[in-house]
Design a protein around this nucleic acid. Structure first.
Lengths: 242, 242
DNA sequence: GCCGCGCTGTGACCTGCGTCACGATTGTCA
DNA sequence: TGACAATCGTGACGCAGGTCACAGCGCGGC
């Protein structure tokens, strides 16, 4: 099904084809040249740890390709996913700006290219360009908004079905671009395991399994490997009150 | 017991006695003068709403005196407290920077003086001074860290007693400066109602009541109105695993 | 092809805590 | 000082979902 793809490395931020779509990278030429000279590009396989919760900050990462999951772990080893970071995001900002240990562990979910900038150089870069300040503020704002969403989801949703429905409907915001789709069916790609979904929703793996099967039995959802179809969006929305 | 205090208004940021202790206000003279000319000072009674969740942003508030609670409410009217903001914090930043509706409702917990800066002027102020960018980044970073703490508390703590112990121990970080205290006893001031504590911990009022009484019966806590004594810190710490 | 590991499905059990209900206590304003 | 509202204390009940245990299943590696 999936043809083997060659992993494209983006060497030069100035000619990066994605630049304008990206939250952080869409910068004026001057700042972009400075960024280009500061950054060190690296490619990581799926499952690589970019940084670990509690470590002293070494610098920030800018995601070029690939998504990463940010998670935090309790003393007993229970862990929750704070959010999934998309290409164009800067990771490790809170730690770098306030010079405190990394708040989260960052693990790549797929093969990933990322640009690394050491902390001191990033701070200097930040102080030298006003636009960077704005971009940093936007990224931090985005982090906050995601965090607040998570808090609302954890603290205000009453039931697990509700939380899962909310998650799935959130993924449906950017559906798979499939040609032969039937009207009303939304195809999405879900590469997370049930364990990870449980960590996102703040529940247990077994409950995720049971709830998904409940959705399937109701005919609201069809699952085929990593491709899911939302068959009845409105019914799922009824579950969501917030 | 409590003598009636005259509420002191701080007219001038340049001569503000608290400036150097405050997260946001400790600025170089130039930026401070600009701030002084932009701001509009107001005094609010306890229980005043500075901004409402979902409203279009009008601007930002800088807390001079008094604390405020930031909360968010679900469709059914259940609400949780995101955090308690202290003097020196800037509120409404996420909304103002990204021009999205306010994320939270801000309600004063005590008589409060706050400086208001309209959104467009604040953005101009931000773009005109690099130091403001850093301060904004620090405030946003602080917001994120608080939010992540809340997520950890909601998602990783298993029991309500654990969450409450964590909360109380957090308050014990800055205890009341009382002279005749016995060694090992930590006096703290708690002006929140049990309902509010429940919203902070993501639980119900009744459970807070029961759990606090459990702590009292164990001899770990003594409550006298708004003044509480932590009698046995180490036992309470044993409850906290994260 | 076969083996093994990671993922998923499902039953059984049980407990923490949310909810309802009501009464006691405290604070506050006229 | 008295009355009313807000806050707090506590018993009873029920169930959502966490936990444990184990069984199929798919997929990649050798």
């Amino acid at each position: 099904m999936a043809t083997k793809q060659v992993f494209q490395i983006i060497e030069n931020c100035l000619t990066c084809p994605h630049r304008e779509k990206r939250m952080f990278c869409n910068l004026p030429a001057g700042a972009l040249r400075a960024l280009q000279s500061l950054k060190a590009t690296a490619v990581y396989p799926k499952g690589a740890m970019l940084c670990l919760e509690g470590q002293q900050p070494r610098g920030v990462f800018i995601l070029c390709t690939g998504r990463a999951k940010l998670s935090t772990t309790s003393a007993e080893g229970k862990s929750i996913i704070l959010r999934i970071a998309e290409p164009g995001e800067v990771l490790g900002l809170t730690a770098a700006v306030s010079n405190t240990p990394y708040e989260a562990t960052v693990e790549t979910l797929e093969p990933t290219q990322a640009n690394f900038i050491p902390q001191t150089e990033f701070i200097r870069f930040l102080q030298g360009h006003v636009e960077i300040g704005m971009k940093v503020a936007q990224q931090l704002t985005h982090n906050c908004q995601c965090a607040y969403d998570e808090i609302r989801s954890l603290g205000l949703s009453n039931s697990v079905p509700e939380k899962l429905a909310k998650l799935i409907l959130g993924w449906a915001e950017n559906p798979l671009p499939i040609a032969n789709k039937r009207p009303g069916e939304i195809p999405i790609r879900v590469t997370l395991t049930q364990e990870e979904i449980a960590q996102l929703a703040g529940t247990s793996r077994e409950t995720v399994s049971r709830t998904l099967n409940h959705f399937k039995r109701k005919g609201w959802l069809r699952v085929n490997g990593a491709t899911w179809w939302i068959m009845n969006r409105s019914e799922m929305e009824k579950l969501v009150t917030t």
